[in-house]
Structure formats: C-alpha cells, structure tokens
Design a protein around this nucleic acid. Structure first.
Lengths: 250, 250
DNA sequence: GATACCGTGTGGTCAGACCACATGGTCAGA
DNA sequence: TCTGACCATGTGGTCTGACCACACGGTATC
C-alpha cells in the first residue's frame, strides 16, 4: 500500500514530452548540440528515449515555436530539425498570445518598449557606432512609392519595424533586440488596423520619418538625454495616435 | 473520412496545429475565451476543426509552455485546459532555452536585467508605493536558519528571486515583471552552481541583504539615481562573483 | 444520513499507418 | 560520355484508434 508503482506515465513526475525537452536542453548545454546541428530523427529520438513519437513531436513543436529549431520535411542535409536559435519569433509569439489572453496589457507593452529602446539609444549615444543599416532603412522610407507619392503604409511600417530592430541590433544586445522586436511584432497587427483609419496618414508618415532622423542625429552627437526624450515621444505619440490602448472591446 | 483534400497538410500554407493555435488566439482576441475559461475538450476541438487530436495536442502543448493555459486530467470543473495567462513560466522557458542554444549570451541577459530593474526602481522612486511584500521578504531573508546560523543558500536565493520580482510587480508593469523574472529564472540553475563554490557564501549573503535594504531605502527617499546605481552594482557584482559569464565551457 | 462503489469524461500516451516532399542513386537513351 | 527520367529512401506532417490514470458525480449499500 505504501509503495504504489506508477507504471505508465511520469514515473519520475515528468511527462513524456518533458523528458524529450530536457534531453535536448541537456545536449545543448553540454555542447553536444550547437546552432546548425541537426536533431536526431523523430522516430530515432522516440526509440532512444523510450517514448512515443507523438511525445517527441510535442517537444519539437515547443522548440520550434520558441525559435530554437526549424523543421523541414524531405530527405538530405536540408531536412529534419536544425538548431537555429532565433529568439525573435518565439518572443513575438509569447507576447502576442499573452496580450490576447489578457496576461499583458497593451500600455505595459508600450511602456516596456520605451524602457528598452531608451536603453538602446543611451548605449548607442555612448558608443556611436556607424548605424549603417539603420540609415539605409531611413533612406528607403523616404523613397517615393510606386505611384510617385509617399511609400505605401504597409511597406513603411515594415521598414519602421526594421529600423527600430536595427538600432537594437547595433547595441549588440541580442536579448534586448529580440524583446523589442517581440513587443513591436505582438501589437503589429493592431497597429496596422489603427493606422488604416488615420485620416492624415501621409502627414503622420512624414512626421515619423522626421523623428527617426532626429533620433539618429541625437545619437550621432552623443546626446543620450536628447535621444531618450525623442525615442520616448516617438513611441508614445505613435501609439496614442493609432489608438492601440486595448484590443479587447468589452 | 469523407472530407476531400482535408488530409493535405499545408494546402493553405498552415499546418494543422497552427490552425488550432490561430483558432484559440482568435477566440481570445474576440473575447470568447477569457482567463479562467475552459478550452473545449481535445477530442471536441479536433472534431470541430477537422484535424487530428495529436495536432490539437501540439497546439495545446505550445500554449501550456507559453503560460497561457494549464491542463489537468480527470473529470469535473477542475479538469481540462483552463486559460491562466501567466507569462512568467513561458518567459523563463524561452530565455533559458535560448541561452542553452547560444541564441542569448549570459552577459546580455545580465545587462538586460540591469536595464529592466533600473527602470523598475526609477518608477518606484517616483511613485513610492509601500512595498509591503518586498519588505516582508527582506525580513524573511534575515531570519536565522534551522541550525541557528544564516538562512540556507537555496532558501535565500529563492527569497532573493521573490524580492526582485516583488519590486517589479510593485511597479505595476506585468511585461517588465515577467521579463525580469524570466531573465533571472533562466540562469538560476547556473547561479546556484556558482554560489555553491563560493568560499565565503555567508559573507556574500549578508552583503546582498545589506544591498537590498539600501535599494529599498533609496526608493523610500525618492532617490531614483541612487536606487539605479545600487541595483546596477547589486546585479553586476553578484553575477561577476558567481562567475556566470558563460555556460558553455568550450 | 453517511459511506463505498463504479460509470463517465478528461488529459497523457503509444502504436501504426498513410501522405507529401526532397534527395540521391540508378538506368535507359541520346 | 553525358543527360534526362525514374524510383527507392528517409524525413517531417497527419490522422486514427486504442489504452491508461485520474477526478468527479451519481448510485447503491450500510
């Protein structure tokens, strides 16, 4: 009566897919698996760990959503699950779903963006890297669109996102870069909806481009305080204008 | 079954588990699902969406790891998958695995902690909330252990983590709180290993407690600058001491 | 009225079977 | 020899069906 034999699942308290996850994590920490390496085939992994293939697939799926691996069917060197370690997608999914589930409030997301981007421009003002990629994006944003007028809204927003990400990447901190990108991505669709109803989008777009230039200018001059103020106003004004305060109507 | 072309996996570019994920996300955004609500049973969801139960389970697993739902077997009101929206666990898993996969460098994790916690204490210095929970944790950290000496290392580190989380929670920003907690959790195990080899842990523990008091003191006085400096030194010194610069030896 | 029992529905897991796909070899033809 | 078509192979993607352990809730029993 005292010792009950738990035969089938979780003899050690862990579910089958957790066993797989821990195994892979252990191999990563131990250096057995590195970025670029291939995971064993699902069927082989299942046999080796003594679990079903479906459990292996649940672990694989988690790793894929978290941005650790990429899977491709077929045969040959390109197929299978390969370690990629791209945190951006996973961060986006996490924030986006938590916003949807009301675990994150949109104002908190915006406020956190301000904190992170302020830290980024502070860092950049001190180091003053060339910011080549960011400048190229700014140039592209000011190019006329196909109809001769300003760039289309969707293209502009895509470049805008890339610009902010380029700043974060230039700071050299991958954690901040992915978090920033995730925060932005997560409310991206709501931003596009908000922007689509703006009556004077062309003027807004022109203003945003001007603010971008001012931010880069402050960084170039080593004016950390000015860069912080500008990036804060840039982000907060933008979100206030597109009215993305909450995605839940009720 | 009789459904034609339903077996084709990516006819619309989306895999089956993505269909399930999007459906649930859509229900969340639409307000059909709220925190506390139960998801339909896996078998029912599979039948409704025309996918296999294994695909539903892959989506469920992702949502569980991301901290959106909690699953329990059995029957009755407590069973099934319920929306919880607790981002902390998901953030921890994401950061921890990305560190393991070398997508995140440990110094970047520490630097981001400094950025976020600096923002937290800045905010707290302006608002000056009572910080009741944080103070109680500090008291608990200074209680003697079972043997009359200082608190055990593991218990102290648990309280330390709770203290930092309490500060973040007091700032009212759930996004920052979960990110901070995730950053700390993700390297927690490496910290414990590093702390276990410290020759003078008792002295370190006493110093950490003193620094905690100083941080709270600066917040109480509305000294944002002092609080920032103290929290930065607190975190950076700690990690330098426990030598958690990299988890990959090679 | 309280207790023991058992049916029911849940998630957790596994085994087996297909499919679509990408590869790489083989083989027939130019 | 070169070129093209062809097919065997191994991969992930998916579905189906079947168990298990578990928690609940009703029912029968005391």
């Amino acid at each position: 009566m005292s010792a009950v034999a738990e035969v089938t699942p979780a003899a050690d308290g862990a579910r089958a897919w957790e066993v797989v996850l821990r195994r892979i994590e252990g191999d990563l920490v131990a250096g057995i698996l590195k970025p670029g390496d291939h995971l064993p085939a699902e069927r082989a992994l299942a046999a080796e760990l003594g679990v079903g293939r479906s459990s292996v697939r649940e672990a694989i799926r988690v790793l894929e959503v978290l941005g650790l691996i990429s899977t491709r069917a077929g045969s040959g060197p390109q197929s299978g699950a390969v370690i990629i370690a791209r945190p951006t997608g996973g961060m986006s999914a996490l924030v986006r779903l938590q916003v949807a589930a009301q675990g994150f409030a949109v104002p908190d997301v915006v406020a956190t963006r301000v904190v992170l981007e302020s830290a980024v421009v502070t860092e950049l003002s001190a180091g003053r890297p060339p910011l080549t990629e960011a400048r190229e994006l700014l140039d592209a944003m000011e190019q006329p669109g196909a109809d001769g007028g300003p760039l289309a809204r969707d293209e502009f927003l895509t470049l805008d996102q890339a610009f902010h990400l380029a700043l974060a990447a230039a700071s050299g901190n991958a954690v901040i870069a992915s978090m920033m990108s995730g925060l932005r991505d997560s409310i991206e669709q709501y931003i596009r909806v908000g922007a689509s109803v703006l009556p004077v989008w062309a003027a807004t777009q022109e203003r945003l481009a001007r603010e971008h230039r001012a931010i880069v200018g402050a960084i170039d001059e080593g004016d950390a305080e000015g860069a912080r103020t500008r990036i804060r106003n840039h982000i907060e004004t933008y979100h206030a204008e597109t009215n993305v305060s909450s995605i839940h109507d009720h």
